[in-house]
Computed example of a mutant assay.
Amino acid sequence: MLTFAAAVFFLIITPGPGVLSTAGVGAAFGAAAGTRYVAGLFVGTNLVCLAVVSGLTAALLADDRLRTLLFIASVSYLAWLAFRIAFAGSRIAFIERASPPGIGGGIVLQAINPKAYAVNTALFTGFSFWPGNYAAEIALKFLIVNAIWIPIHFAWLWLGISLQRMNLPERAQRAINIAMALSMMIVVALAAWSQS
């Protein structure tokens, strides 16, 4: 079980679309909007977990055409998001919008986030620690994942809010945007590669 918890921590804390966009929403819109966005990500990630555990993901991805279509849609959206982050200018902000993405935005991001599927597939199909009781193991895994997921995402939200408050020079803010965009694309590429 400790190995599972360690895997959860390291797989979730690595920069991906969820945590990077959380920092961006915090930087652009503050704590209240960031908290609503994290709530959406929370619902979305648990829906992804349910899709993986129930076999729905495997059934959908069994059709090569549908898998290719979903892959192209996910990577296109996340590449667009990374582009917007990289070229947000000299202000740390992920999306220049009049309003924050909210709960719905968080749910949608997780639904198309290939890292979410790759991580949850690895966690829920591997790391068996209670082979005699599959239902209890899955329930315990949900508890462990969420107990680690929540503070990590709030730490990234705090990081985004803190970066904005630092009032860094324009070059530093631009460099942070580019580094976050590159990190997002690297993690997305790795997640997509692991799925293939």
Rank of each mutant, 00 (worst) to 15 (best):
L2W: 05
L2N: 07
T3K: 07
F4Y: 12
A6W: 00
F10R: 00
I12V: 06
P15D: 03
P15L: 11
G16P: 07
G16R: 13
P17H: 10
G18N: 15
V19N: 10
L20Q: 06
S21Y: 07
A23K: 02
G24A: 08
V25F: 02
F29N: 01
Y37T: 05
G40L: 03
G40N: 04
L41E: 03
L41W: 04
V43R: 05
T45E: 00
V48C: 02
L50V: 09
L50H: 05
A51F: 04
S54P: 14
L56E: 08
T57H: 11
A59I: 11
L60W: 10
A62D: 14
D63T: 11
D64Y: 14
R65C: 14
L66A: 09
L66M: 10
L69Q: 06
S74R: 12
L78P: 01
A82M: 07
F83K: 15
R84D: 09
A86E: 09
S90T: 14
R91W: 10
I92Q: 10
G105N: 09
G106V: 04
Q110R: 13
I112L: 09
N113P: 02
Y117M: 03
A118T: 03
N120R: 04
T121G: 14
P131M: 06
P131W: 05
A135P: 14
I138H: 08
L140P: 08
F142G: 01
L143G: 12
I144Y: 00
V145T: 07
V145R: 02
A147E: 01
A147L: 05
I150S: 02
H153K: 07
F154A: 11
G160H: 04
I161C: 08
L163R: 12
Q164A: 15
P169I: 12
E170M: 13
A172V: 10
A175K: 10
N177G: 06
N177S: 08
M184R: 04
M185D: 13
A189N: 12
A191I: 01
